[in-house]
Design a binder for these strands. Structure first.
Lengths: 187, 187
DNA sequence: CATCTAATTAGATGTATATCAAATTATGGC
DNA sequence: GCCATAATTTGATATACATCTAATTAGATG
């Protein structure tokens, strides 16, 4: 089991390696046969150091291998690595794992930081998404399994914001609180 | 039948689109559900314009779609396009096609070498294929967005070959130059 | 050993682009 | 119609890196 972030950097390196015109051409040129640096430079109309640089980058991610013959270096496409990497990188599961790297938590933290001063709500967010974050925070001030009168609910909310009526209604609407016969409870 | 070079640029764009840390994270974040620009900005700890920019790039290559709700724009991963592109990129045939792009390039180099002495054209190639290579080289002596009189066009061509009339007509025919009311410009 | 060639490394330069702040556009609520 | 919010556009800046030349390394050859 590889960590999500390790997988992320691997996938990113793969894309970076192939996201350059010259490198992609090199990979194409090597798909049929191994070639020397000089030969590739001729085909791509680039100087040798440039090609050398690109080959080094491709080698870093194991996409090519090198074989020395005298002073000549023959590079070949690592077909197995190519197939393995692309298969793994392009798998849907991988994309989902990347999602894990980006924590939703970060977003919620930011909202709370933006709208709270201590435990006091500066204002009620206008956007539904942000309001939901605040409401999920707010509902934590109610014990699970306990029933409250409307007066108690309002009092608890009022600690955090004067407009308890709106917030009480929103909590119901967001299905975080439920109500029957004048009594409220957490869902 | 798609041309090799068209396929090449498509594959390259795909890799370029995913070769940035932020964009890769965005794709990951969208793998589970659609999200607003603001939300993504919060999750990635970036400003909204930056995220907007990245989403535009992802949209260019059809990797995401957008849905408007009030002033909020919800972006979603285009799973079909993602799978489609991945499958194609994965195919071995694609890599081989890329190889063909390189040879085409090399081919063009050879033509130019064969028909040019310095910047002077030895003769106008008889075969269409070779003539096209020469014409694409020739049109580079015209600035993009600038308009030329017929006299100017002829003068520029004459620097490279005496038969400017034929070449001027060929440039129009190859849709490399366009003309109206006696003025010429690059397409 | 001197020299030639192939490749790499080092250093310089230019271009592409990721990012942000400020300005602008678009929409919804009052 | 005015204000607030979300998004985009614009313009500026800064960083990454593709490419080149020059210098260096390493093997082959006379």
């Amino acid at each position: 089991m590889v960590s999500s972030t390790a997988e992320f950097t691997e996938v990113l390196s793969f894309f970076k390696a192939l996201s350059d015109e010259s490198r992609l051409k090199i990979v194409g040129a090597l798909s049929s046969e191994e070639r020397s640096v000089d030969e590739l430079a001729g085909m791509l109309n680039l100087r040798a150091p440039t090609v050398s640089h690109h080959l080094a980058r491709l080698k870093e991610v194991s996409l090519v291998t090198m074989r020395t013959e005298g002073t000549t270096h023959f590079y070949a496409l690592n077909v197995d690595a190519m197939r393995d990497l692309s298969k793994r990188v392009l798998a849907l599961k991988t994309v989902e794992n990347i999602g894990r790297v980006v924590s939703e938590d970060a977003y919620e933290q930011k909202i709370l930081k933006d709208f709270l001063v201590g435990e006091r709500l500066k204002e009620i967010p206008a956007s539904r998404k942000k309001r939901d974050v605040i409401l999920r925070w707010l509902v934590n001030f109610f014990e699970e399994g306990k029933e409250y009168t409307e007066k108690e609910v309002s009092a608890i909310i009022a600690v955090h914001h004067p407009d308890f009526a709106t917030l009480r209604r929103e909590l119901i609407c967001a299905k975080l609180l439920d109500r029957a016969k004048g009594l409220y409870w957490r869902i």
